[in-house]
């Protein structure tokens, strides 16, 4: 995937201009200081924001998103949240691999557990690119290892963002700064 001469402004405020990036590796971690527009770039690539200038070559057809916020539906349990995007059997399996009780109410889960439900939903969805915005937020080191293995086991291209070089390392990701 290639980002060519990409510019984007949000409510009149420039987020980035004339950005060029080569995103050729299968697993990539975007690294940039806060406010540089990582999330915006991920949404542009995933087609959630409309392009204003420049182009993206080889953009995914059907990306599978993990947003920076968990964006779970608090009125459903963990299993129902994941089954909204995949078959129930698959949803259950992923949740169990991430040590989440499928019947757990979202409001009863800790921050790190909610993150894992959101991750399960993203992995359950059959997309052609995993776009993961700060995927390991709130997880401890042991869980990060497990989660990273689970993500890599999907054998899909990954585009993630993270502040931590260690997280990128666990994913075996090529770090691209912008």
């Amino acid at each position: 995937m290639k980002i060519i001469d990409l510019s984007f402004a949000y409510e009149g405020k420039e987020v980035f201009s004339h950005l060029d990036l080569d995103l050729e590796e299968p697993v990539i971690c975007l690294k940039a200081p806060s406010g540089r527009g990582k999330t915006t770039l991920l949404k542009l690539i995933g087609g959630l924001l409309e392009l204003q200038g420049g182009k993206i070559e080889g953009a995914p057809e059907k990306p599978s998103f993990l947003f920076q916020e968990d964006r779970l539906l608090p009125w459903y349990d963990a299993l129902h949240n994941v089954s909204l995007v995949a078959e129930e059997e698959k949803a259950r399996e992923l949740l169990e691999k991430l040590h989440i009780d499928p019947a757990a109410r979202i409001s009863s889960l800790s921050g790190g557990m909610k993150r894992r439900v959101a991750l399960a939903r993203t992995l359950a969805y059959e997309g052609d690119l995993l776009i993961l915005d700060e995927p390991f937020k709130g997880m401890d080191s042991e869980l990060i290892t497990e989660a990273a293995e689970l993500i890599l086991a999907r054998k899909k291209p990954v585009l993630m963002s993270s502040h931590s070089p260690e997280e990128a390392l666990r994913m075996g990701a090529k770090i691209i700064e912008f």
């Binding site: 959630l48 599978s64 998103f65 947003f67 964006r71 539906l73 459903y76 969805y125």
Partner: peptide
């Protein structure tokens, strides 16, 4: 808006968005 964007990202149908996000939010 975050939940609605999530629904868009996972390609929820209109009916699914209505039933799983809008109705419970308005209850």
């Amino acid at each position: 808006p975050d939940l609605l964007e999530m629904a868009r990202a996972f390609r929820f149908s209109r009916m699914k968005t209505f039933g799983s996000i809008i109705v419970p939010s308005l209850r």
